[in-house]
């Protein structure tokens, strides 16, 4: 159980986060937790419930679609601190099926602007040049380390993803380097198995680290890179090996977005997951966004773990679900 001091520290950090965005001219908004159409991310499973007339409803896995609808309605800079829910995500020190998400979005911005927001936000929360976390001293002075996914694969595994764009060649390369790709059925499986076993453990231990330009296949709502559409303008933020946030230069082309959501529907079907309707209100709203936009989702509980030097997310959450499911 959290003690009074921890709860006070959590409250103070949350207040500082709000102060930071208010000072930067963001408007705080709150989106609904209960929704008719959940996000389409192929590997997320939302909690389902139903209205009294049997209409299916879902607890949101992220407020992303609603946030973008607000951008379409003329809002320029918005932030949201909300509960999100992901079914099945339990076990270990980094997951609780219900957690608190901070999302913020900017118009006339790309993912590099959001990278800078991340730096400024974390610096505003810490009165020091370093964060001490579980025997690691992580430097948070600007600029943070920025490294692309492809650079990481080359650095730690000597694999250039651009030369291994299809499943068969990626598989052959991984086997030739004696990397474990057991039970990997597609390109992304190999990617993650290698990333999780050989790369992620190195990230963000000396300096807060931004990993950018993920494969487009893993970023259905992000703008592809003009110079190399195999990658999309997506980044993740790592401190002490903990993944804290996921950001995109937002895809605002409604036609391309429709095609990519249809791809995700197919993928969900192939994974035997519930296939959701495409949120037509979301696609229609993209039509009225002209300016480039960028946004991010940051897990507040994980950030609090780092700031309060706690090794387990259950040490910053009152009544974590795992304590009840295991009994």
């Amino acid at each position: 159980m959290l003690n009074k001091k921890t709860i006070q520290e959590i409250n103070l950090a949350t207040e500082k986060i709000r102060n930071f965005f208010n000072k930067e001219g963001f408007l705080e908004i709150q989106t609904p937790i209960l929704n008719k159409i959940p996000g389409m991310e192929p590997h997320l499973t939302p909690f389902e419930t139903s209205f009294t007339n049997d209409t299916k409803l879902y607890l949101n896995t992220s407020p992303e679609l609603q946030m973008k609808k607000l951008l379409a309605n003329g809002f320029e800079k918005i932030f949201n601190i909300t509960k999100v829910f992901r079914n099945g995500e339990i076990g270990g020190p980094l997951h609780n099926p219900e957690f608190t998400m901070l999302e913020w979005y900017r118009k006339n911005a790309n993912y590099e602007d959001i990278m800078e927001d991340c730096e400024n936000l974390v610096i505003s929360l810490v009165n020091s040049k370093t964060i001490n976390y579980q025997n690691h001293q992580i430097n948070i002075e600007k600029p943070w380390e920025r490294i692309s996914i492809n650079e990481l694969f080359i650095k730690y595994c000597d694999i250039n993803l651009l030369e291994n764009k299809d499943f068969e060649s990626f598989k052959a390369t991984a086997i030739s380097k004696k990397l474990d790709i057991n039970a990997c059925h597609n390109w992304d499986d190999i990617f993650f198995k290698i990333f999780l076993n050989h790369i992620e453990k190195h990230l963000g231990f000396n300096k807060a680290t931004i990993v950018y330009d993920y494969p487009s296949s893993q970023a259905a709502l992000a703008q592809k890179k003009k110079s190399e559409p195999f990658f999309a303008e997506r980044f993740e933020l790592y401190i002490a090996g903990v993944e804290l946030a996921n950001a995109f230069s937002e895809l605002i082309d409604a036609n391309e977005q429709r095609e990519r959501l249809i791809e995700e529907q197919k993928l969900r079907k192939s994974l035997n997951k519930t296939v959701f309707d495409i949120d037509e209100e979301f696609l229609a709203s993209l039509e009225s966004i002209i300016e480039p936009c960028s946004g991010i989702a940051l897990g507040i509980d994980r950030l609090l773990m780092i700031l309060l030097n706690k090794s387990d997310i259950k040490d910053v959450i009152l009544f974590p679900l795992e304590n009840y499911l295991n009994k």
Partner: peptide, 16 residues
């Protein structure tokens, strides 16, 4: 001795 769920953002589920 330990097994935990990992879902790397937009990927399938893994067990660390």
């Amino acid at each position: 001795s330990e097994a935990q769920f990992v879902s790397p953002g937009k990927g399938s589920a893994f067990t660390r």
